[in-house]
Design a protein around this nucleic acid. Structure first.
Length: 619
DNA sequence: CAATCGTGCGCG
DNA sequence: AAAGCGCGCACGATTG
């Protein structure tokens, strides 16, 4: 039965009228109410609630928030004994936060669907798909686009009610699968951490636009001068004469204009010009150009240009479009569950803000705290390498962390049989790199399932030599080899792989069946599964850790009353904004919390967190 | 004209 | 049988 609470005088054949009192009374004893909202748009800061829907499979209440003050539902929504069922809870939570309402506990059907389908590239986690697959019900989503235009008409009321009534049966079916797959712990983790992401997104982070625009000026000028440099080289190379126009158009305004109409941003044009200049290549990507630095004077300039052009296009003045008109802050959007369990971010993707290169420090310094606050950040040191230590139990690898030495240097000395003082000496096969750099490539690369071919290519050494190095390396850390091969085989045999305890998140390999068949693609697919099986538990366990850290930090801030907001979650790193007066104490507490969080998963390997207080985001 | 694909590159 | 994992974003080229 559907009920409407608003200012309509009569009900309809589709719904009855009800009062707030009746609604609150009904939900007094309901432990898991279904919840949803309709809004005037997607942004919680500029758009508003149109209605909220609270329901059970038997009864759905659609409440017109234009007429009814949402505050009357605050006690219900904040009732800690209840768990609210939502699809994509983060969205609704943020709209309630705007009204100072903080929903107690949530179960998010979308997040659980992500966990149950991790690895499937063609999946859909929409409510419509879940209704279809689990219940055989077709939801009419065509009305949604019209809600803002037509308001709470009868058919919109029906649509809105339908959007909540299936959440209970969906949860029931999902939880059977969750139990079967032993995903209870990770379901709880994701449903807890979604509230933290909502909080982070709502709060956002401040960007100093002056600093940002200064950097943009610098990078734009850089692109301009590199372009001129490239043009000049083309003009002076007889082989490239056909790119120089015979007649140069006059310029009425007397500005200096480019004579050539080459677009140096076009990979096609770059490729053709370099080929005409006598350079043999089939791509203009950085790894290829690096090897051809001395093949033609254009090449080194092109390398610099693509770096500089990237800074302009991705981190130039256009980036400021992400500053919210209402709040003056950026509000990155987190996607909580990738196939491995990692998080991604968009609009803007704060994960990919430059951290290397000369301008990186300045770019990051544009991310600043509110007035009267400082940025306090914590960064897990070598988390993926510690996860390898924890799960492989390799004596040398473990010993390196136990003694607090530099893992890359210790392993390097062992692999190449050299004294540890010599690890920064040139690598004889390729003197431009150091022994330790080779080791770093191996340490990270092997966790991705890298082959001798790739190592040879990356290091520019013969395949035989690469093979020899890998063999020697695995002979000094045999349990790491066993660990990685074990994962690879497990994934290939079972068609799925898990992260470590206690979460044991699953990633499925939908291509598994074909990989076991006579298909011509079988070998390729098996290789894919093998490499992903090696990497997913490492990357995913890292994701598990950072999510525990977010939950614990958020909880401590609330329960211990810290004047702190979590700003960003970037891979191994948490950035917070803390009142100046509390920075020192908070820094110590954050350090403790992050270590405690990691120890939920990593029990036998020491955890190191680098914490810092600063006036901006620093690495 | 917009939608989609391919390439390249920022981060870990 | 191919040969390093996981992303989001911008741009140019292609397609509808």
């Amino acid at each position: 039965m559907r009920y409407f609470i608003g200012n309509k005088m009569i009900g309809s054949e589709h719904y009855k009228l009800a009062t707030v009192q009746e609604c609150l009374e009904y939900f007094k004893d309901i432990e898991e109410p279904e919840l949803d909202t309709e809004t005037t748009g997607l942004c919680c800061h500029v758009d508003n609630l149109l209605c909220i829907q609270i329901g059970t499979p038997d009864r759905q209440y659609v409440i017109d928030t234009g007429v009814i003050d949402v505050q009357v539902f605050k006690p219900l929504l904040e009732d800690p004994t209840k768990t609210f069922l939502l699809q994509n809870a983060k969205f609704d939570i943020k709209f309630f936060m705007k009204h100072g309402i903080h929903i107690s506990n949530v179960y998010d059907t979308m997040l659980v669907e992500c966990l149950l389908t991790a690895g499937d590239e063609n999946r859909s986690v929409s409510l419509a798909t879940q209704c279809k697959n689990y219940l055989g019900v077709d939801l009419d989503k065509t009305i949604r686009a019209n809600i803002q235009i037509e308001g709470l008409t009868d058919r919109v009321i029906v649509y809105s009610a339908e959007d909540v009534r299936y959440l209970t049966p969906i949860k029931a079916i999902q939880m059977e699968k969750v139990k079967e797959l032993q995903l209870e712990e990770v379901v709880k983790l994701e449903n807890d951490v979604v509230k933290v992401f909502a909080d982070m997104e709502f709060h956002g982070v401040l960007v100093d636009q002056k600093v940002w625009l200064d950097v943009a000026d610098t990078t734009e000028k850089g692109v301009e001068s590199l372009t001129k440099e490239l043009d000049k080289i083309v003009e002076t190379d007889p082989k490239l004469i056909r790119y120089v126009p015979d007649v140069v158009q006059g310029n009425l305004f007397g500005f200096e204009e480019r004579k050539l109409n080459i677009n140096w941003g076009s990979n096609n044009q770059k490729l053709n010009i370099l080929r005409d200049a006598g350079v043999k290549l089939d791509s203009v990507g950085d790894p290829v150009l690096q090897k051809l630095k001395s093949a033609h004077p254009l090449v080194p300039v092109l390398i610099n240009l693509s770096k500089q052009a990237k800074l302009v296009s991705s981190f130039g003045r256009d980036f400021l479009k992400h500053v919210n008109k209402k709040t003056g802050r950026i509000h990155p959007n987190y996607w909580q569950i990738l196939h491995t369990g990692r998080i991604s971010v968009k609009e803007p993707n704060v994960n990919q803000i430059p951290s290397k290169g000369e301008l990186a420090t300045i770019i990051r310094s544009a991310f600043i705290p509110r007035k009267g606050y400082k940025i306090v950040g914590g960064d897990y040191s070598g988390m993926e390498l510690r996860i390898i230590a924890e799960f492989s139990k390799d004596p040398l690898w473990v010993k390196a962390f136990a003694e607090g030495g530099d893992l890359h240097s210790i392993l390097c000395a062992a692999t190449f049989g050299i004294p540890i003082e010599d690890v920064k000496k040139p690598f004889p096969e390729k003197p431009t790199v150091k022994y330790r750099d080779v080791q770093k490539t191996i340490n990270f690369g092997l966790a991705y399932g890298m082959s001798k071919f790739k190592l040879a290519d990356t290091m520019q050494i013969p395949v035989d030599k690469a093979d020899e190095i890998i063999k020697k390396f695995f002979s000094v850390v045999p349990k790491v080899e066993g660990f990685l091969n074990g994962l690879g085989n497990l994934g290939k045999q079972r068609g799925f792989i898990r992260t470590g305890r206690p979460f044991r998140r699953i990633r499925f390999f939908p291509q598994w069946k074909e990989s076991m068949s006579q298909s011509p693609r079988a070998g390729k697919l098996a290789g894919e599964i093998e490499r992903r099986s090696k990497n997913s538990p490492i990357q995913g366990t890292n994701g598990d850790v950072i999510k525990v850290a977010l939950v614990m930090t958020h909880k401590a801030i609330k329960e211990e009353g810290w004047p702190v907001k979590i700003l960003l979650s970037v891979y191994d790193e948490l950035q917070t904004e803390c009142k100046e007066t509390h920075c020192e104490a908070w820094k110590d507490r954050l350090d403790e919390l992050m270590i405690e969080a990691a120890e939920v998963v990593i029990k036998n390997t020491p955890i190191v967190v680098d914490c810092a207080i600063s006036d901006y985001w620093q690495k």
